[in-house]
Nucleic acid binder design. Structure first.
Length: 593
RNA sequence: GCGCCCGUAGCUCAGCUGGAUAGAGCGUCGGACUUCGAAUCCGCAGGUCGCAGGUUCGAAUCCUGCCGGGCGUACCA
């Protein structure tokens, strides 16, 4: 379809030039760039619209008059027809050629359909998740995780070589707090002895610390002392730390497995913070930073209109910024990248502005290739999530709740038989609901997470996509067509190998073909904007169009065998695109639900 | 105070590099299952695109100011 667009572009530029010549105007300032292609507001107006306002000055004529003349010059041709509609030139493509080309491309490319070469030869590292080892994941992490995972897949689909990295935040005062509380109140309990998921077990002691500090303010100092012991390598502290970290990380990893999040490399702050300190000290020697009387090391950020910022505490221990410096340098050494994307909440904008600048001050010219994807906060309908007030939504609990709802729905519909493993399917539906809901909003915006709405299986949701895919799959399965693009051998039993695409004459069929053809545009745009929401929107539209089509037109039960074959071919293409798209937003594709 | 971000229908969100009457979903109300999955489909109602200027043939979209909300401005992360 892009070729079709290009051909029309050439034709239009041609006739505009001809017009200019005939009017005795020299062919100045008339370039193809002035042609803006748009989609007409209603499909019945055509497939492509060209506003002619920009040419009014050139021809000293009203855009509408130009439209009439261009339309007359172009007339009807092999590649379609065009007509003037006010100041617009509306174009209709010759359908059957496009239909054939698009559907055959989907068949041929299969799981690879929609890929672009936008970012080929680019090495992109993407950091996301970055959990603390003092508590389990919550809803905010889920947005982070799915943004990172989905974006990674999208960038890869645009041809980039992507490396997903995590950074386990396993050191710092906050980690010492849960350790301290455990040491004091734990009485040797273990996750096994208590029968709770290990990261939740650790998290309980972090909560316990915060209760304790209310009664005994000295707890804060004790935590700080423990951090110093930790940095000094105190045996007892290290042993405790290793034990509790193991628990936290094991539990968090289980959540990753459940949600389909994975990484190519995992970094640990406990291993990178020292090199960060070395870099800061080097900067100090080179005069890039300065030392205060109390021994703390600072950077003056006046040149980027920011304040002064601490890089090392007076007692010599590291800070968040210090370790991020070390981590970034280690990463660039491990895997030199063209771009590094940090998926981190927008509240840390300041931190990254400082980090990127400091790295460049330290002589890392690649500091300019770092990008902070600052995503908005997730709030609840009844207010903000606050850990202190106990209004955080725990990730595991949330997912379990969604699974329960999905399972109930499957039973209520009496579909246990068809589905087979109810829990497995319910789990996939829960994930589809969660991921779709979180991705459907533009990342930079704050969003409201409504648990009730997220589990609703009506409307603009993940389960709706899954349902549409499952219906098509079932239909194809019943025909012996299989719903997988990389067919199982017994494909097309009745078509004799050829499909007469000209039989797809319905407007909705044409709509579907056009939507399929623009899939790669959606993939490209999502990659450029770092926004999976472009894809959720695209897929929802596609599913909706197909649902309407399926409702109004017989496919598998169509009497005319030739028409049936053509419609089946179209359905196979739609389901292939749904599959490919769902893969990019980590919504499990279901053959039955 | 200063800096950054956001402000579209009752609610949750779309709206591509400015372009034809601003779109979905939910919710309300009303329709459609002897027919390929009704977790579906169709229809009605609902918006001075926060406000005011400016640029432009044309602004929800770009610029300026203001108002409202959020976040940041920690030897927390």
């Amino acid at each position: 379809m892009t070729t079709m667009r290009e051909r029309w572009k050439t034709e239009i530029v041609h006739s505009l030039h001809a017009m200019a010549r005939d009017k005795g105007l020299s062919e100045v300032d008339l370039s193809a760039d002035m042609l803006a292609f748009e989609t007409p507001p209603r499909p019945d107006l055509g497939d492509l619209a060209v506003p002619l306002f920009p040419f009014a000055k050139l021809f000293r004529a009203a855009p509408a008059a130009i439209a009439v003349e261009v339309a007359a010059r172009l007339g009807d041709r092999e590649i379609g027809t065009c007509e003037a509609a006010g100041p617009y030139l509306n174009i209709r493509f010759a359908r059957s050629a496009v239909v054939q080309q698009v559907l055959e491309a989907v068949m041929h490319e299969g799981d690879g359909f929609g890929r672009t070469d936008e970012l080929s030869a680019q090495r992109i590292m993407i950091e996301f998740s970055c959990p603390n080892t003092n508590k389990p994941l919550h809803l905010g992490h889920l947005r982070n995780d799915i943004l990172g995972e989905s974006l990674s897949r999208i960038l890869a689909a645009n041809g980039a070589e992507v490396r997903k990295v995590n950074l386990i935040n396993d050191r710092g005062v906050h980690i010492c707090k849960s350790m301290l509380a455990y040491q004091r109140f734990g009485n040797g309990a273990t996750p096994e002895s208590e029968g709770i998921k290990s990261d939740h077990f650790v998290g309980a002691y972090y909560v316990r610390f915060n209760q304790w500090v209310k009664d005994d303010p000295s707890a804060e100092n004790q935590a700080r002392e423990m951090l110093q012991k930790w940095e000094a390598g105190d045996t007892e502290v290290m042993a405790l730390w290793q034990q509790m970290n193991r628990w936290a990380i094991d539990g968090i990893s289980e959540t990753y497995r459940r949600t389909g999040i994975s990484f190519d490399e995992i970094y640990y702050e406990s291993k990178t913070y020292l090199s960060g300190r070395d870099e800061v000290l080097r900067g100090l020697q080179e005069g890039v930073f300065y030392r205060e009387d109390d021994g703390s090391v600072w950077v003056d950020l006046e040149e980027i209109n920011l304040d002064k910022k601490v890089l090392l505490r007076g007692d010599g221990t590291s800070l968040y910024l210090t370790q991020d410096i070390g981590t970034a340098i280690a990463r660039h050494g491990d895997w030199p990248f063209d771009r590094l994307i940090y998926v981190v909440a927008s509240e840390q904008r300041y931190h990254f502005a400082v980090l990127f600048h400091v790295l460049q001050k330290l002589g890392m010219e690649w500091g300019k290739d770092l990008f902070h994807l600052a995503y908005g906060m997730v709030n609840l309908p009844d207010g903000k999530m606050k850990s202190r007030e106990g209004t955080v939504v725990d990730a595991d609990e949330l997912i379990a709740g969604l699974e329960r709802m999905a399972a109930e729905e499957i039973r209520a519909k009496g579909r246990e038989e068809e589905v087979g493993d109810v829990n497995q399917t319910a789990g996939d539906v829960a994930l589809g609901a969660l991921h779709y809901y979180l991705l459907q909003v533009n990342p930079i915006k704050d969003m409201v997470f409504d648990p009730r709405e997220s589990i609703s299986f009506n409307g603009n949701t993940g389960p709706y996509l899954q349902y549409t895919g499952a219906r098509i799959s079932t239909m194809l399965r019943k025909l012996g067509q299989g719903s997988s693009g990389s067919g199982s051998g017994s494909d097309r039993p009745e078509s004799g190998g050829t499909v007469d695409y000209a039989l797809l004459r319905e407007d909705l069929e044409w709509e579907l073909v056009k939507q399929i053809a623009t899939f790669s545009d959606a993939v490209r745009t999502a990659g450029r904007q770092y926004s999976p929401s472009v894809l959720t929107g695209y897929l929802y539209e596609l599913a909706k169009t197909f649902s309407r089509y399926y409702h109004d037109h017989p496919i598998a039960v169509e009497k005319d065998a030739a028409v049936r074959s053509a419609r089946v071919a179209l359905s196979r293409a739609v389901v292939q695109v749904l599959r490919n798209g769902c893969e990019l937003i980590a919504v499990p594709f279901l053959h039955v639900m």
